[in-house]
Nucleic acid binder design. Structure first.
Length: 213
DNA sequence: GGCCAGGTGTAAA
DNA sequence: TTTACACATGGC
């Protein structure tokens, strides 16, 4: 099949030329490099970011700004605070357990940020590959490529199909990783994923994506 | 009023 | 090992 992009590097360059992140936070995800990203990564599972912002504001106003606060929060109270982003019974349990384990294993967010890895994150209940990579990429500032439904839909528009998260992620990484110094990769992957999401949001037509590249 | 959203875990088949 | 379903709110 004829494809508009031969590898992920071509896609990256084409998206970059569209200035999709002009009015977004520097690394696309708000509060890049902070604990709030960990909370947001769980809350955004199968829900809209505008809803997550509402929950995050509730949490800030209630003083639930760190792992120890959330780990110690009354379950019913936490459910009410995060209710706006949906799936709140699951997510409150997931957040409390995740925060308790984070505090116990690492002692706080900064050591967690420096020392955690994908395997530890995937072992947490309610943390799958996308949430784990989102935390690594946007909270821990690591070279992790996040892929999601947007990524799959964009590549489907180019004729690519992948049978797993890992296969899709590998395609994205393989075209990119050798093209930049290792020290730049955390921000390159962060930008790449952000550009993909913004592109699809702007050019989606129903369930498919219009290609203007 | 049905479909969808910045997924994941569990239980059937 | 694959597929189906539950979780739940609010925007469109």
């Amino acid at each position: 099949m004829d494809r508009g992009v031969n590898d992920s590097f071509e896609l990256y360059r084409a998206l970059e030329a569209l200035n999709l992140l002009e009015s977004k936070p520097p690394m696309w995800w708000p509060a890049y490099g902070t604990f709030e990203v960990v909370v947001g990564a769980v809350l955004t599972q199968n829900s809209q970011w505008t809803r997550v912002e509402h929950s995050l504001r509730n949490l800030r106003e209630a003083g639930m700004t760190g792992p120890s606060e959330i780990a110690g929060c009354d379950p019913g109270t936490l459910m009410e605070l995060i209710r706006p982003s949906g799936l709140f019974r699951n997510k409150s349990r997931v957040l409390k357990t995740l925060c308790a384990n984070l505090a116990e294993t690492y002692g706080g967010f900064e050591p967690f940020k420096a020392e955690t890895d994908r395997e530890w994150l995937l072992a947490q209940k309610g943390v799958g590959p996308e949430t784990a990579d989102s935390v690594l990429c946007y909270a821990c500032e690591r070279p992790a490529m996040v892929v999601d439904a947007y990524t799959a839909r964009l590549l489907a528009a180019f004729g690519y199909e992948f049978d797993s998260y890992d296969a899709l992620q590998s395609w994205c990484v393989e075209g990119i990783e050798s093209r930049f110094p290792g020290s730049e990769l955390p921000r390159i992957y962060a930008k790449f994923h952000g550009m993909i999401v913004e592109y699809v949001k702007r050019y989606k037509k129903g369930r498919t994506v219009e290609i203007i590249l």
